[in-house]
Design a protein around this nucleic acid. Structure first.
Lengths: 116, 116
DNA sequence: CATAATACATGGCGTGGCAAGGTATGTCAA
DNA sequence: TTGACATACCTTGCCACGCCATGTATTATG
């Protein structure tokens, strides 16, 4: 697991938004999705994730709604707004360019189409 | 140019160390090297770079020596220590794993050997 | 002689991850 | 039943660090 907090700072937003776009809906589920999607490499601590969701909501990229699960648990469900989808697309582009640049400088394998 | 400070946080150290390992030596030169190596994508502001160099020196990854250029300017030249080389290698590995994971989640092109 | 480029440095601001702690409910085994 | 555990939300304080602004010198240039 990556234990350097500074790495997560640049990637948490796009990852969270991406997973919500992919169907993860409420906080606890999103936290699990981050772990699972990263093969345990990424960990979104609760004290990190919940404030992040609130920020994204406040900025208009997410909308939230309280619902009750079949088992009777209250959950706050998030979904992307239109602005959120556009923002995610921007973050994706930004991250792709950035990681490509850093990889190149660090001499890490080229980002490219994998041989068929 | 990436204008998101949070991205730089996770990558500044490895990039700076890498460029010093590649021959960049003093602050001003390193700042230029960051710009040039990234094709203008990355920018190490002086208020960011100098403290970063001081931190790396304090942690024992860099050693510094004042010299005077042929034109008579004072420059603080840095070079990697043994620990610095090992640290850079760790950072490289960490970054490679991290960026690979995030790229996969964001659905960005696979990292792999480019077709010959 | 003024302006720009070179070269170093620092202080205050704001952001945000993390540790720690808090509240509440459902499930399940002993 | 009770106690432990998973689920599910939240917040506060700490600290690290990038950025902006500013300061100080020296050399080069027009």
């Amino acid at each position: 697991m990556t234990q350097n907090p500074d790495l997560l700072r640049g990637a948490l937003e796009p990852v969270v938004l991406e997973l919500i776009a992919a169907g993860a809906s409420y906080g606890y589920e999103i936290a699990r999705a981050v772990e699972e999607a990263s093969g345990g490499e990424l960990l979104a601590q609760e004290g990190t994730l919940y404030p992040a969701l609130h920020r994204l909501e406040k900025r208009g990229y997410l909308r939230a709604a309280w619902k009750t699960s079949p088992e009777g648990r209250k959950r706050k469900h998030y979904h992307l707004t239109g602005a959120g989808r556009r923002y995610l697309e921007n973050l994706r582009t930004e991250w792709a360019a950035f990681s490509r640049t850093v990889n190149r400088i660090l001499g890490i394998a080229h980002v490219g189409i994998v041989c068929p």
